[in-house]
Design a protein around this nucleic acid. Structure first.
Lengths: 187, 187
DNA sequence: ATATTTTAGTTAAAGGTGCAACTATTCGTT
DNA sequence: AACGAATAGTTGCACCTTTAACTAAAATAT
């Protein structure tokens, strides 16, 4: 059974957004020499108070596969923005730690990212009748919920070895129970 | 100036959706051996009543670059789903035409696409308080509008050589004036 | 008419990404 | 202890995408 016309219109636009937004973000961040995904990694590390994170945890938080992360981290390591440090307590694990230069670049990329968010998304949302940000929050939550059922990882996350994840020191919002992988950078 | 917390939550979810949805669609359509983008191409051709389209027009409608389209069309051509035919009236131009097999595959991919849309997106929207589809339509419109200003192509489209685009025979919706490239598959 | 510029499209090179295979380490059994 | 299973990560391979360079044809100007 085919989709209704309003449904097709909505999906066509969603599809266009899916195609255009990531590229637009990458272009903006290109000015400081990082991709949007790389910025996400720097950001995740910068916000983890310990300044480091396990590869698999990082992959989970950023909705990335481990091979992808591994390669990007290698690239960031070559640029000395991130350093790989073997985990002392678990011989299998590797921690990615932000270097001083990495923190500097993150400062820049964060500013650029914020302005990109404003210009590419928030500005448009501001033209909506109601509270555009709230609408986007609810809408993405609705979609991500059904997506997570479909999604390999996520489903929910019970045992996270790192304590900082469970007991969040930063005053977060009234945090709706968004499945872990979907919500990620919530803090 | 940093983003507010609600803004960060909304953007984080948007970001997650941007990362996860395309992959999810590709996985579903993989069952008939086409990517989501390939389906979009087959769909565009199937919906153009003449059954063919100029490469550049196709690229425009699908928000793709010409090199990307060229390679994908080559791949589809090898699988005999699409055929390249030089344009008789303009020696530079090439028309992509849907083959019989291409139409068959499109039949399948369309069904799969529709169910993917329902399961990955519409189902979630249905859990929203109001009209989820309308909200998505408005929200994507808002975002795409500001995006288009930023966007190389689009901006607006005056002279489309093909008449079928201007005078749409299919009863479309009350067609809001969405910038061309963003709205694309509106019919 | 002819030279220049634009337009349409393809191709080459570089880099990113996913899947599957592989190594190394830890955990669980016995 | 020692074996097999699970976990963490990396790497090889295939494919896709982007940017830049390139070819060919049409439009424009001289």
């Amino acid at each position: 059974m085919p989709l209704t016309h309003p449904e097709r219109v909505a999906i066509a636009r969603l599809h266009a957004m899916l195609e255009l937004l990531p590229t637009a973000f990458d272009k903006r961040l290109g000015a400081v020499g990082v991709t949007a995904f790389e910025h996400t990694l720097l950001d995740a590390l910068a916000h983890s108070e310990d300044g480091f994170m396990r590869m698999s945890e990082l992959a989970h938080k950023t909705n990335a596969t481990l091979p992808r992360l591994s390669r990007v981290v290698t690239s960031l390591e070559r640029r000395e923005l991130i350093e790989r440090v073997p985990c002392p307590s678990d011989g299998r694990a590797t921690n990615a730690v932000l270097t001083a230069r990495g923190a500097e670049v993150h400062e820049l990329s964060q500013a650029l990212y914020a302005s990109a968010v404003r210009e590419l998304v928030l500005e448009g949302l501001g033209r909506l009748p109601g509270d555009g940000v709230a609408q986007l929050t609810d809408l993405t939550y609705a979609v991500l919920s059904s997506l997570d059922a479909d999604h390999p990882r996520a489903a929910s996350f019970g045992g996270d070895p790192e304590p900082e994840c469970a007991a969040d020191p930063v005053p977060t919002c009234d945090a709706d129970p968004v499945p872990a992988c979907a919500a990620d950078a919530i803090d």
